[in-house]
Amino acid sequence: MTRVLVVEDDPAIGSELVEALTGNRYDVSLATSGEQALEQARLRAPDLVLLDLGLPDIDGVALCRRLRAALPYTVIVVLTARTQEFEVVVALDAGADDYLTKPFRLTELLARLRAHLRRQAPPHDERTLSVGLLRLDLPARRAYIGGEELALRPKEFDLLAALASRAGEVVTREQLMDDVWDANWFGPTKTLDVHVFALRRKLTEHGEDPRRITTLRGRGYRYEIEV
């Protein structure tokens, strides 16, 4: 049974999440503070963490970073009332795989969790891929710019591989959502834009041309062969 750790200090939201997840046959535990979350994660490593960023004792982003260090293969989904895009990017950089903005529908949350768990261990491709300064070691899931390794979250790596493997081609939003998230993904595709924003920033920080990933409004994205 899939183990889920819910980290939420609001009693009403916490109990609702526990009830909904338990009813869908998840093995659920609840932590109402950051310290409780760290202790529970240490004693019983979860397969998935639902993390509220607004906790009373530890900053949610800092806690996300600590959980990611302790649980490298656990799916972390941030629950946040914060709507500024840069705040969401900070959480993704800290190790979150995805986010949901409060208030959210339980049906959407459950669908996203199923999508993440289906794709938690994707098969390895036996190729190495190079475009411009970028080199992807697909079996090892590692990315390099000019020999320097990028620190990418799992979804960022999948997104970069999906774009680079079709370099020079327009990859539609729908194709990227199918490839990187799931063909049965439920909910808005805003998460794609946030991940592209974070990925583009990481590439340029390591010396890649900022024009390497082109946005084609209303269509999708293209990883340019030449810039």
Rank of each mutant, 00 (worst) to 15 (best):
R118S: 01
A143Q: 00
L129H: 05
P139K: 10
E174R: 14
L100P: 01
I145E: 02
R153G: 15
P103M: 11
V194D: 07
R127H: 15
Y144H: 01
F186S: 08
Y99L: 00
R118E: 06
F186K: 12
L133E: 06
T128V: 11
E149C: 00
A162Y: 10
E169P: 02
L109P: 00
F186H: 12
R135F: 06
L199H: 12
V196G: 13
D137Y: 12
L199S: 10
K155T: 10
D97G: 07
P103G: 04
E208A: 12
R211V: 04
G95I: 06
R173Y: 13
F186R: 14
K155L: 09
L117D: 10
P123D: 11
G132Q: 00
A164I: 01
R141C: 06
Q175Y: 05
Y144I: 00
T172E: 10
A96P: 13
L117V: 08
R127W: 11
T191I: 13
G187H: 09
P103Y: 07
G168M: 13
L199A: 05
G146W: 01
R212V: 05
T172W: 03
K102W: 04
L203Y: 00
L133A: 03
A96T: 14
P154H: 06
H206I: 00
R153D: 15
R166M: 11
V194P: 01
T172R: 08
I213N: 01
T204I: 04
A164D: 04
R127K: 14
R211G: 07
D98P: 04
T107C: 07
D98E: 09
A198R: 14
T172G: 08
R127P: 09
W185L: 07
R200E: 04
T101F: 03
A162K: 12
P122S: 12
E148Q: 15
R141E: 12
L106S: 01
G187Q: 02
L159S: 01
R142L: 06
P139L: 04
L152C: 06
Q120D: 10
H116K: 11
L113S: 03
V180H: 09
I145W: 02
A198S: 15
T204F: 06
R212I: 02
E174V: 09
E126M: 04
T172M: 08
E174Y: 05
V171R: 13
R127M: 11
L100G: 04
R153F: 14
L150A: 05
D97V: 07
I145G: 00
L133P: 04
N184H: 12
A162N: 13
R153N: 15
D158F: 07
R118G: 00
D158S: 15
I213M: 03
A167Q: 14
L136Q: 05
